[in-house]
Every structure is written in structure tokens, then in C-alpha cells.
Design a protein around this nucleic acid. Structure first.
Length: 121
DNA sequence: AACATGACGGTAG
DNA sequence: TCTACCGCCATGT
């Protein structure tokens, strides 16, 4: 109820929030990856805008969303990028630089949920 | 209906 | 590899 979904079909923002809520702890994804998963590959900017308006009460892990290069482009939303970096470090997310995570090691793609592993890891 | 906004992405130099 | 530009999109006025 408070995600702009009052008129029936979920809005773009609402779908973004659902996806973000599924990002596993210790992993991160990108604005573009979310946009592609929603069927609008060119709407990366809109994804970022949606996150900037994410309701606090939803307690979404928006710190797990970075840009295509792993940089914490939304870091200032917490007052200072150090706060976002701290949240990620607490989850043992690997960093390449103070404000850049190692995407090669922790990138999570929404599609992964569609590939159910046949064997338990 | 047009214009401005904003936590992006791809490409060229 | 880094910077500058330009193109894309959903919303609110």
C-alpha cells in the first residue's frame, strides 16, 4: 500500500522495490540489471530515481544496488558514501577500492532466481 | 501535452 | 583507463 500501487497494476517503482527486496545478503546488483529484469533495459535512471524515493518503512536493502562499474553512486543518500560502504562491508561484500565493490565476485542478477540449482551447493 | 528531474548506461576521444 | 556527451525512462507539475 504505499508504493504507488493503489490503482491495480503495480507501478514501475513498486516492481523495482520487489526486486531489490530479493537481493541476497552479501551480494549486490546494478541499476541496469534491475531495469533489464523488469523488461525496460533502458530505464536504469528510473531505477535509481525509484530507490531515492523508497519508503523507509519498507526497509529495503538499497545499499546493495551499485552502478555498472561497482561504484556506490547512491552513497550520498546516506549522508556520506562511507555509511553505504559500511553496510556492505558488514555483509562481507568484497571491495576493489574504498567506494567500489568487486562486481566480478559478488554481482547478483535477478534472473538467477529462475535457475533453480539441481544439486544443493 | 510539454518540460524538468534524477542513486544510469554506452560510446567516442 | 578516465572524461565528456548524449540517449533513455518513469513521474510530477
Amino acid at each position: 500500500m504505499g508504493r504507488g500501487s493503489g490503482s491495480g497494476r503495480p507501478t514501475f517503482f513498486a516492481r523495482v522495490f520487489v526486486l531489490v527486496s530479493r537481493i541476497p545478503r552479501g551480494r549486490v546488483t546494478t541499476y541496469g540489471a534491475i531495469a533489464r529484469a523488469l523488461g525496460t533495459p533502458r530505464a536504469a535512471r528510473s531505477v535509481g530515481w525509484a530507490l531515492s524515493l523508497a519508503p523507509q518503512e519498507d526497509a529495503l536493502p538499497c545499499h546493495r544496488v551499485v552502478d555498472r562499474n561497482g561504484f556506490l553512486s547512491g552513497g550520498w543518500h546516506w549522508g556520506h558514501p562511507d555509511v553505504m560502504a559500511g553496510l556492505l562491508r558488514d555483509e562481507d561484500v568484497p571491495f576493489l577500492d574504498p567506494y567500489r565493490v568487486d562486481l566480478a565476485a559478488c554481482l547478483w542478477l535477478p534472473d538467477e532466481d529462475d535457475f533453480e540449482p539441481r544439486l544443493p551447493v
